[in-house]
Each structure stands twice: as C-alpha cells, then as structure tokens.
Design a protein around this nucleic acid. Structure first.
Lengths: 391, 391
DNA sequence: TGTAAGTTTGTTTTAACGATAAACAAAGTA
DNA sequence: TACTTTGTTTATCGTTAAAACAAACTTACA
C-alpha cells in the first residue's frame, strides 16, 4: 500500500511544473505559478532543481507587460534520446527520438524471414546504428521500446505472435543484457495508442480507442490518459470480436471475427479474386495505384472493407463511448476510400447520442505511431526513475 | 490541475487507516502501523481524529503476545446509513444500508405504470418510509443512490430510458430538493458493477465486467477498482454490440444486437411461441417452474439463451481480458441452466490464454447488486466530503 | 528628457503542517 | 527482575505557502 509523504507531494508538483513547461514553453516562472496554482516560491525551487538536472533551460527574456521582464524557460528536449521500434510482420521501422518525441533519425529495413534467429540480430544491428548516430547529450539514450504484433506479458515476453510465428520469446531480457539499457516490450496496437495519446491525434482526448488496421486488427484502449492493459496484459483483442455469430471460423477459435472482414489480409485475399487484378502483383501499394487510376472493382472492394470497419467500430463505440476513435497502421494509407463508408455505417447504426460529438480520426503519423509510442514508453520510464512523471 | 500538498498527504493516509480498519477489524494501532507502513505516531493521530468523527470505536483489549495488551479498533459501520434504489422496469427495490453496506431495511413495490408522474411520487414515499425506519445514529442518512435502466449524464439526468419510456428526466434535482440530501443517479448496470466490486463477487478483482442480463443487456466496466464511465457517461452499452452483422434490426439503429438474442425480453418472446406454453402465464418465474418440472422445450430455450450469452461474453473477454465476469440481474435466477452452455461456448470460442484463469461468476446478491451499489455510491460521496476516501 | 509612481518577476524569510524517529510511559508476560 | 509490546510525547525534517522584499521594467506627466 502506497502511503502519502512529502516525497510524493514533491514528485507530484515537480511533474506538474515540468509538464507545464513542456506544454507551454517558452514560459516564465510566474506564469507557471498562475497556471498550476502552485506558489511562486515553490515553482522557483522546483525549476532550479530541474535546471540542475538538465531538463530545463533558461533562454533569454520575454516581453514585459508593464514590469520586470520574465525569464523564459524551455524544456530541454535534447537532454536525452530514446529508441522506438515497430517490429512489423514484413519490416522493421526504427526511430531515434528526443525526449519530446521528435524524430531525429529513422531507419526502415524489410524483413524477408521472421524467425527469431534472423530478426533479433538484425534488430540489434539497427539499434546499434541508431546509437552511433545519436547527438551528444547529458543523458544519452535512456531506453529502448519495442512494439510487436502479438500478445505480450508483463515480463516483456512475447507469448504469441501468430504472424511472426513466434511463441515465448523473451525479447526484453535479450536486449537488456546486450545493450545494458531499460527495454519496454508492448503490443503494437497498445504502443500505437500511446503514441497517438502523447504526441498525435489523441493529444486532446483522455478517453479514446486506437484501431490498428494492419495484417490483422488490434486495438489500444486509452482510459483517463492511461493505457488499459487488462488482467494479463492481453486486452484489446477486438479484432476477434464476433460480428457474425455463425460466420467463418477464425484460427483464434472463434467464428465470424471482425478481422476476417476488414484487414489487410482480407483485402489482399479478396483482391486476388478480382478479374481485373489477374496477373498483377498483389500488395497494398499496388491496389492503391489501381484505385487511383479508377479501377472500379478495387474501389468497391475498398468500400466494402470500409463498411465492415464501420460495423466493428460501432461495437467499439457502444462498448466504450469514447471521445475519439483513431484509425492507424497500414490501412490508414487508404483513408481517402475508407472515410466515407465508415462514417456512413456509423451514422446509420449508432444511437444518435453516441454518434454526436464522436471524432473519427486517422493517425497523424500513419505507420509511425507504434515506433513513436514505444519510444515514449522509454522516455516515461526514464522520467519516472528521476522522480518526475510526465504524461 | 490538482497540486500536491499536506492536505493531500493526510487524506491519503487517513483513508489508508480507515480502510485497514474496515478490512481487518478488530485491529490495534500497532498492527495498522505494521500493515500500512505508516509510523505508529501517525496512526495514533489519525485514529483519534477518526474516533472524534465517530467513524471508529475502541472496544476492549485484545490478546497480548508478550507485552502490553492492544486496544482493539472497529469500524463504526452504524455511524450513518445510506439509501439505495433499484428502479426496475416493473418494480422498485429499495434498501437502507449501514456504512459497510449491510442491509438494515428492505422494501419492494411492483410498478404497474412507468410514467414519471406515477413513479416519482411512489419513489418519494418509499424513501420516506425507509428514512423513518432508520435507527438513530450520529450522521443519519447520508445520501440516496438510484440505479436506473437507461442512459444518464453527469448531471443526474436520465437522458433516455427506453423501457420506462422516459426522456430527459432530472431525478437528481427533484430528489435533492425534496430530501435535502445528496443524490447519485447512475445506470443500473454500472451501479450493479460497483455493488459487486465493493461488497460482492468482485471484491477480489480489480478488473472485471458485470453483465446485467435483464429486460435488456447492460454492462458495467470496472478497471483498476474504478467504474469506467466513458466520455459522456454512456459506456457499457454492450447489449448493442452486433453479433450478427446482417441480423434483425434493433430500435437502437444497429442490426443483430446481442440483447436481441439473449435477454429476458427475448426469452419471453420466444417462450410465447412454444406449443407447451400455450395458454399459460408468461413470466420468468413461471418459466422457471416449467423448467423445474422438466419441460424440455423450456429447457432447450434456456440453453439457447445461454449459448448466445456465451457468444456475447466471448466478445467481452476479447475486448477487456478481465480477471472476472459477473453475471447479474434477473436472468441470474436461471444460473443453473445458463452456466453449462455459457462455459461451453466460452471454452470453444476463446483463445486458450483468455479462457485459462478466467472466472465466470454469478452475482452474489442476485437482483440486489444495483440497489447495494447505488447505496455505496452515496457512502463514498459522504466519506469523500469528510476528507476520507474509501474504496 | 527626466523622474516619480506603479507593476511584474523572482527570491528570501518565516510560519504552518504533517510524517518520522527516538525516547518514554504504561501494561503486560516469563 | 528482565524483557516485550503498545501507544504517546517530543524533537526534527522536508515541503508548501504567505508575506516581505529587491530588481527590473513601463507609464504618466511635467
């Protein structure tokens, strides 16, 4: 049981000060005091500690409004860096971000083979390259976050990743021993949700659901600005919510799962049956080209995928009554063609008070949400160790 | 933004002390100190405040283990009372509980007509009767909680209750003006979930979903021991999750909603078509009698309802990965016949790691969860005003 | 242009509050 | 008599807040 003491009070207030600076930089001490409700003296004290710790910088003075000029404070976002990885099914996307989540370096490598024996060495290579490219800074790289397309447990093991064909692989332990840095492993949709919450389209919502429309469908649930993980860290498998009780059998054991009707796999599977696609290469980018050049069959396929996406989203909204829904991952590339059918189905199927005021957005980062969210996990773990929490 | 100060620290610690007493009463000051990690002096001080406020009593001494005998402390659960109401579709169930949630008085009245003009005066009558029957106590009745079968907003208005045929009725304002007491209005399933979390089958889980199988289906979502309300207080309408994308139209606007396949309405509707029920009265108790006397048609109807309950529950589990699912409200009366088909479907449809360790329980209070949860809301509001929070 | 008056910023000083540690008194057991 | 356990008292520490203050600036006006 966590008791209350002065350390807790200080941690809370120091976090408030740092967050205020992050959110409204440049800002003066006086203004922080007004915004937060903390006394001027308290703010002054906490700011000097943050400056000693290199998290805050004084840069010049601001404009006076009839008195002494304020000293402006900045969040020193380059005091350290974090590495975020999106371990996709057929690619690895890696970013080096600063403490504010700005991408400094980026790498992408295709994955031909997905066995751990091939992937893990490649992963280490990529991380090493990014480490070498980091600018010099007081704290250096503070941690590594990895988003994976599968079910993880709280020890950083990947319990099951069907699309990689992995079972029981402890990536966290492996990377921590190799790099001597804290490593966070999280499901790809959960990491994406977190990325959107911290830096992206979900910054202004405290309660939203991120839908990862990729090879399969995953969801990340943000409640009160916190990721909901579930009892054993396996929440959000809404891709396996039944939308047709007597539908096709899914390999998860259930029937009529949502992702059998609306995902990249399904899209490609159904595209293969189109007469107009005979003999052509079958991948998402190719289909986008076809759609762009007016292939009616592809267009109506996109539309059908969008309608089924809408049916699943109706379930999401009835369950969570979120402020916002954010659609991300690979299929966010076909936003243009999904948007209309999705909205149409939602409007038709939702009870009006649920539809009113509902914001359906697409990811701001496209495919990068997951890597950015993973990096953000590491940044938070770092701050949390430094007696400051930033959310 | 809530800053940290000493008041916060004290509130946290005082709550810890009171909760420890509630959980482990009778208990000595020294033992509280050991269990909570708080210093003996701190505990002593907080306990004397709690005693002055009549929340804690000293009753005699305990056994010595080789030194001075400890003075044993009790939570004074009869320092005040709360009223909890379950406003059902065809009944009003009202309870008077003490601060620990023990039922002291109970009343149940049938509802023939559901218009606000009839229901509200009756409701006031019932509450008045309970008020008169309360034992004398330092704080008296500290509040009134009402669970309603509909969608509420954060101002205590009932936005929409289809089964009562109510729209925009501000029960909170009405009752508060009449009784001069704090009133909490909440959706029936949310109140039930809270009741089970505080006093019932969900005491030991921090993350579970309560399924109210009544005239319709509602769900209450408990995350981290807190009720999740959703952006506009309308979360948990999982009765309207589509389980058959092209199924029957529901009046909510959606198609193939779960509650069209597994609820009391559906049960009675389908029972009406059974040859063996011709000419007999159609209600739940009658059907239970038929099942008890071996009516095969009714038994297989119960079984089918159970299977569809299982299909919806699969969706709940894939979405939340809860520790526990609790089934409550009217259909918990036919637990005996639902249990097997529900478990069978879950085992068949769930991915094994989701099924393992999942606890599917039925409500401990049967139909009373909602009234008890509503009363508990009032108790908490009362403590929260007294600078103590109890969860 | 010069100066007095007022304003804003940020620091210093002091007080208040709550938790803790240590000493202590009280009440028991062996 | 020696030891243990309980619960209170006392002194100290860390943290915030209020008030006083110094510094730096703007504005108004002669």
């Amino acid at each position: 049981m966590k008791t209350g003491d002065q350390e807790l009070v200080k941690k809370i207030n120091k976090s408030i000060v740092l967050q205020t600076i992050q959110a409204s930089s440049p800002i003066s001490r006086a203004q922080i005091s007004k915004e937060s409700g903390l006394n001027k003296a308290t703010v002054s004290g906490l700011v000097s500690e943050l400056m000693e710790e290199d998290f805050v910088l004084e840069i010049g003075t601001g404009l006076s409004s009839g008195g002494r000029k304020p000293v402006m404070l900045y969040f020193n976002q380059t005091a350290g860096y974090a590495i975020g990885i999106d371990l996709g099914v057929n690619y690895i996307l890696a970013v080096l971000t600063d403490l504010q989540g700005q991408v400094v370096e980026k790498m992408e490598e295709p994955l031909e083979e997905t066995s751990p024996g091939v992937v893990l060495p490649l992963l280490k290579n990529i991380i090493n390259t990014l480490m070498q490219r980091q600018p010099s800074s007081p704290y250096g790289v503070v941690g590594i976050g990895v988003g994976v397309p599968g079910i993880t447990d709280n020890n950083g093991s990947i319990l099951f990743a069907p699309n990689l064909n992995w079972e029981q692989v402890n990536v966290k332990q492996d990377l921590e021993q190799y790099f001597k840095l804290p490593v966070v492993i999280e499901n790809e949709a959960k990491a994406g949700a977190h990325g959107e919450n911290i830096h992206g389209a979900g910054r202004r919502s405290s309660d939203f659901v991120y839908i990862s429309l990729g090879i399969g469908i995953g969801t990340g649930i943000i409640i009160d600005n916190k990721l909901y993980k579930g009892a054993r860290g396996m929440s959000g498998e809404m891709g396996h919510v039944t939308i047709d009780a007597n539908g096709k059998k899914c390999r998860c054991g259930n029937k009529g799962c949502w992702e059998l009707y609306s995902s990249e796999s399904t899209l490609l599977e159904q595209a293969a049956k189109l007469p107009s696609m005979e003999g052509k290469e079958l991948n998402l980018d190719e289909l986008i080209q076809e759609a762009d050049s007016g292939n009616g069959e592809v267009l109506s396929l996109f539309s059908r995928i969008g309608e089924y996406a809408g049916i699943g989203l109706t379930n999401v909204v009835n369950t969570f009554n979120p402020e916002q829904i954010i659609i991300g991952n690979r299929l966010s590339k076909i936003q243009r063609w999904l948007e209309n059918p999705v909205h149409h189905v939602l409007e038709q199927r939702l009870f009006p008070p649920f539809y009113e005021g509902l914001d359906v957005s697409f990811s701001q980062f496209g495919i990068e949400s997951c890597a950015l969210g993973s990096a953000a996990f590491s940044v938070e773990a770092f701050f949390s160790e430094n007696k400051v929490t930033v959310t």
